[in-house]
Design a protein around this nucleic acid. Structure first.
Length: 265
DNA sequence: ACATTGACCTGAGAGC
DNA sequence: TGCTCTCAGGTCAATG
């Protein structure tokens, strides 16, 4: 479930494996993933160059190239990178593979083919084009901006926080976690939330993302007192021992604790 | 503006 | 054992 913390970990992985090595060629098993290019086109885009750095906006990962161009990756629901040596070690569900001069390869592994790979001249142009909101984990995204963005909205809090054009990076799972820790009902309407409650949400967001990255976004390493290890109906709330419930919000299945997360008055 | 639904894709897990 | 069904997850388009 690649959300912002997962992306941050992918970014570290990419940086520790795939920078500053000449790219020989690429192989795309699933051309439908390519945006604005073709298997041949992405090959020409990359071949003979190398990656020099990385960046991220929300759930979009940008591999920066030695001449300042980019390749954007979106991981859909199931994507991740895997770096490996011999082709006989290529992972199952590898949809796209980059051959480096040193004999190693980087694969985009994605059982469900809902991701995207896109050559780009500019990250900023892409963000504008895609109408991406600000990345929720950039240093510049402080509480005042969080509040300003939400203040004249009337939607449910969870819907707006998951809307990538409002703010970018959060998905279903971490959103539930944040609202659980802030003790806010996922269907709470934004106009009904006080500044203090918005503050609790913002700070829970920082805390959750930081901690999730610290444990490499591995679900089994999430703290036991989080909601995340208890995302099933009938599970016990680690805080009040009440029953975790399933709830649909804007078409996504969420989980929350009805006794800890009350609707605002 | 906002909510809802369905489509995309396909493996995992459940139920028979 | 093997089949069929449902459900995830992120995003977008269509409809109310």
């Amino acid at each position: 479930m690649p959300e912002l913390p997962d992306l941050a970990v992918f970014q570290q992985y990419f940086e520790s494996t795939s920078l500053h090595q000449a790219i020989q060629r690429v192989r795309c098993h699933e051309p439908n993933l390519l945006v604005g290019t073709s298997p041949g086109g992405v090959g020409r885009w990359l071949s003979g160059h190398s990656f020099s750095g990385t960046d991220r906006i929300g759930k979009n990962f940008f591999a920066e190239m030695d001449d300042g161009r980019f390749l954007r990756f979106h991981f859909g629901m199931t994507g991740y990178f895997e770096y490996f040596k011999g082709l006989d070690e290529e992972p199952e569900y590898s949809q796209f593979r980059i051959h480096f001069d040193n004999g190693y390869h980087l694969a985009l592994v994605m059982p469900r083919k809902l991701g995207e790979i896109q050559p780009l001249e500019s990250m900023e142009d892409y963000a504008a084009e895609a109408e991406l909101g600000p990345d929720v984990f950039k240093d510049s995204f402080g509480f005042s901006q969080f509040k300003d963005i939400l203040v004249d909205r009337r939607a449910m809090i969870k819907s707006s926080m998951m809307d990538q054009s409002v703010m970018a990076g959060l998905g279903n799972v971490y959103n539930d976690e944040i609202l659980y820790q802030a003790r806010i009902h996922p269907r709470a309407q934004i106009p009904d939330l006080s500044e203090k409650e918005l503050g609790k949400i913002y700070h829970a967001m920082r805390r959750v993302i930081n901690k999730a990255i610290e444990v490499d976004a591995q679900p089994e390493r999430m703290p036991e007192n989080w909601l995340l290890p208890h995302r099933e109906p009938g599970a016990q709330c680690p805080r009040c021992r009440g029953e975790i419930e399933r709830i649909d919000v804007s078409g996504r299945t969420g989980y929350y604790c009805p006794s800890c997360q009350k609707m605002p008055d």
